[in-house]
């Protein structure tokens, strides 16, 4: 089924309810779906579990969701940055739960969720604090840790262009978590600069096939 073309960012996120697990794309600000996050802020959903590489920068996007205590838990690889003051404050106050995951394990856990994999043994993290309490196995002399998929209710993603079938192309390093997050959520909500008619994207260049995409909103762009 072709995705729903939402009329606005607010319309796109309208179904996100309290307690949802939300994957949010982006690495730093590249690929961060700012307008969708702002709309999530406006819609009032709270008690969210958020999955992102970071825990918000400065006074925008995810950082504001955390500031307003709408995020009860964050699953990320790199929360502490020079401008992560809202996360830092919430964390020190004991008002946000942190699940710290090595970045490659984070990506692979998201990929696994989208690919129907029940778990995988990875060498990353073996013998470290981040593997404590997890099942381990030695395979051919090398240590591995069992990691499980991260399934989500929603994914908020930024791509460059969608067609009316939901096929997506991204731009440069703003691609980052987008393609895997689109696969791992029950509903993938995508903001793009432009939606074009089916047939106007070269199928050879499609990065995310439309099967994974549920909602698209065109927000224009300055590129």
């Amino acid at each position: 089924m072709a995705p729903r073309i939402a009329s606005s960012a607010a319309d796109a996120v309208a179904e996100i309810k309290d307690g949802s697990t939300v994957l949010i794309g982006g690495f730093g600000n590249a690929g961060q779906p700012m307008e969708l996050i702002d709309a999530l802020m406006e819609c009032g959903a709270t008690d969210l579990t958020v999955v992102n590489n970071n825990a918000g920068q400065a006074d925008a996007g995810l950082a504001l969701l955390i500031k307003e205590r709408r995020v009860k838990k964050i699953i990320c690889s790199f929360p502490r940055q020079s401008d992560s003051w809202h996360f830092d404050e919430a964390y020190r106050a004991g008002e946000i739960e942190l699940e710290l995951v090595p970045q490659g394990n984070l990506a692979e856990r998201i990929r696994a969720a989208g690919a129907g994999i029940g778990g995988f043994f990875t060498p990353t993290g073996y013998g470290t604090l981040l593997a404590e309490g997890k099942e381990t196995r030695v395979i051919d002399g090398k240590g591995y840790v069992l990691e499980t998929p991260i399934n989500a209710d929603f994914a908020l993603i930024k791509a460059l262009t969608a067609d009316t079938m939901g096929n997506l192309v991204y731009r440069k390093t703003a691609r980052n978590f987008g393609p895997i997050m689109a696969t791992a959520a029950k509903q993938a909500i995508v903001q793009v600069d432009e939606v074009v008619e089916a047939g106007n994207l070269d199928p050879e260049n499609v990065i995310t096939p439309g099967i994974y995409v549920d909602t698209v909103v065109a927000l224009g762009g300055n590129k």
Binding site: Y91, L100, L130
Partner: peptide, 11 residues
């Protein structure tokens, strides 16, 4: 009291 961050270091 240090806030841990790992990023891609372990990978």
């Amino acid at each position: 009291g240090a806030i841990p961050a790992v990023g891609g270091a372990m990978d």
